[in-house]
Nucleic acid binder design. Structure first.
Length: 578
DNA sequence: CTGGTTATTAAGGCG
DNA sequence: CGCCTTCCATAACCAG
């Protein structure tokens, strides 16, 4: 596309003959002697390079004027300064780097180039290098005894853990998890702040009734959508340093606490309405931890708000346990080396391109977890007995989401194989991991599927696809065979590209009388979109002064009384809509 | 069918 | 203000 456009542009330039500029150019050339020069532009020689460049510039400028591009660009800028397109600075609330603080760690010495120094290379080369990770050294066909003929791995520091994880899998205390954020984000008050955050959370634990709030909403949730806004500057804060991969709300109705996980494994807590006190005046209610070494792609609170599940690409699932005040490791994938034989995730890491992709609580019993991997594996972990109930290969491509129907036995998986598959997990127990299985129902898309979730009522299955659709299938769990057409197909631009997390449309987690969902959007001005899942209609595209970037990952607060939504963007900022 | 390469995309940080 | 980096996303394409 780009290359053809460029080609057209140049051909226009060369085709434009018989212009005044040509005459001017020849005048300019006449001043210079034509015979001895090497500086030639459009068949005319110039005395010096500078003169030729001058001529070239004149020609280009003239062409630009003639093309009308200058006017077009000027009028575009005028429009851009208007209301709709104005560039807004991102919110500075929340995490900030203190540039005055000095990094106490000694910087690594610069590597020197042997080639430039004129030194004979030793045949070793660096095949793959990741900051802080393993370095793979390959030897380019050398047979010298000093140089290994095979690839060798060596770690640049001694105490590295499997897959560069934060530790060996033992519990992380509050202090551990805070200190892991590193110097850049660490403050003198960080540990104290984190302890305060824990304290707040443990107080909330006692206030949550396990059955949820009994109070009825003043009006239906769908009607509340219209009242929502994102105009107050206090509805945005930077909560994690990097791109957001997951968002969740603590279930408390008394205090609004949002959590989010980013690309690097940071986990941020935000007490949204925290009053500026002595402790947190600098943090705007934000507390940062780093319990993982890779992107935190799933985050979910249990119903009582005592445990936060987090899954990371580093191959681990952790539980932030408020009662025990630690981050415990609930699951970790390992390769098939003997030393890991006793581990729950033994042999799951098949090496290249393996990572854990998605995890969620099993709502029949929150001591159990569903898990999916980049290689198409799907598992069910029973934490009570420390066993995998099943561990099956349900696809040969990555599985992006797993969702259990409220009936307790229909499982929907969706991913890169462009399929949404429904399985009866009652048939899974006891099966060997190599078993060949067939889903009882499949929906096939032309592109891969970002997510497929059952609504809390179980009535609808909502899928977000790279074919730019949001599909709603009613009573999918009752169907058999191939689902040809969804009941609703909403056109929705889902090409988030490489730098934004993919969209995953999310249901309101507790509303069973209304089918309400939220999804991020690429439209400008930036907005969060709310849909009625029973009609497939967009209720509202919520934009506002504080929504300056695409909210790729969104979710609702579980409260059925007050409708509150949360969006996370690619710079670690959270936006609250209420 | 698999492995390799490249295009696309948004947004903050920095000079 | 404009250039630079991001790089465990996907898809489309090509070669073997």
């Amino acid at each position: 596309m780009v290359t053809t456009r460029r080609r057209n542009a140049t051909s226009e330039v060369t085709a434009a003959k018989n212009t005044n500029i040509e005459d001017e150019l020849s005048e300019l050339a006449a001043e210079s002697s034509p015979t001895t020069s090497n500086f030639i532009f459009k068949g005319v020689s110039y005395n010096s390079y500078e003169e030729m460049v001058k001529a070239k510039r004149m020609f280009n400028n003239e062409m630009l004027k003639k093309s009308g591009l200058l006017e077009a660009s000027a009028s575009f800028r005028e429009n851009a300064s208007g209301v709709t397109m104005k560039k807004v600075q991102a919110s500075q609330r929340g995490l900030r780097v203190d540039r005055k603080r000095k990094d106490p760690t000694v910087p690594l010495s610069r590597r020197k180039s042997s080639r430039i120094a004129g030194v004979q290379a030793d045949g070793m080369y660096i095949e793959d290098e990741r900051s802080g990770g393993r370095i793979v050294i390959g030897a380019a066909g050398s047979s010298s005894a000093l140089i290994p003929s095979e690839k060798v791995y060596f770690d640049d520091e001694k105490d590295k853990f499997y897959n560069n994880r934060v530790n060996d899998g033992s519990d992380l205390t509050i202090q551990d998890a805070v200190e892991l954020v590193g110097h850049k984000w660490m403050k003198n008050t960080s540990v104290k702040n984190a302890e305060h955050c824990f304290e707040t959370l443990s107080k909330l634990r006692d206030e949550i009734s396990p059955t949820g709030s009994k109070e009825k909403a003043s009006c239906s949730l769908v009607n509340q959508v219209d009242r929502m806004s994102v105009d107050n500057e206090k509805c945005v804060a930077k909560v994690v340093p990097d791109r957001i991969h997951s968002v969740a709300f603590h279930p408390s109705e008394h205090k609004l606490i949002a959590v989010t996980g980013d690309k690097k494994g940071y986990l941020g807590f935000w007490e949204v309405d925290a009053l500026p006190t002595e402790n947190d005046s600098e943090t705007d209610g934000v507390t940062l931890f780093k319990p993982h070494a890779g992107a935190i792609n799933s985050l979910e609170w249990n119903k009582s708000g005592s445990k936060l599940l987090s899954l990371s690409y580093d191959g681990t699932v952790r539980l932030f346990d408020i009662n025990r005040q630690v981050f415990t490791e609930a699951f970790a994938a390992y390769d098939n080396s003997d030393e890991f034989k006793s581990k729950l995730g033994y042999g799951m890491d098949e090496g290249s391109k393996f990572y854990t992709q998605y995890a969620c609580y099993d709502h029949r019993n929150e001591e159990c977890i569903f898990l999916s991997t980049s290689l198409g594996g799907t598992g069910h972990i029973d934490l009570r007995v420390g066993k995998m109930t099943f561990d099956l290969s349900l696809s040969n491509k990555k599985i992006n989401s797993v969702s259990l129907h409220p009936n307790g036995h229909t499982l929907a998986t969706a991913g890169l194989d462009c399929e949404v598959n429904l399985w009866d997990i009652r048939k899974f127990t006891g099966l060997q991991s190599g078993s060949k299985l067939k889903p009882f129902t499949t929906q096939i898309s032309s592109r891969s599927i970002n997510s497929a979730f059952f609504s809390p009522s179980g009535k609808n299955l909502l899928t977000t696809t790279m074919a730019n659709t949001l599909d709603i299938i009613s009573d999918a769990h009752l169907q058999n065979g191939l689902i040809k057409n969804p009941n609703q197909r909403i056109k929705h631009h889902n090409q988030t590209g490489r730098w934004l997390s993919t969209f995953m449309a999310q249901w309101h987690p507790t509303a069973t009388n209304e089918e309400l969902f939220v999804v991020g959007s690429m439209s400008k001005p930036r907005r969060m979109e709310f849909f009625d899942g029973s009609t497939g209609e967009m209720i509202k595209g919520l934009d506002g002064e504080c929504l300056t970037a695409v909210a790729s990952r969104c979710c609702f607060h579980p409260s059925t009384r007050n409708l509150i939504a949360l969006g996370g963007n690619s710079s670690g900022r959270l936006t609250i809509a209420r």
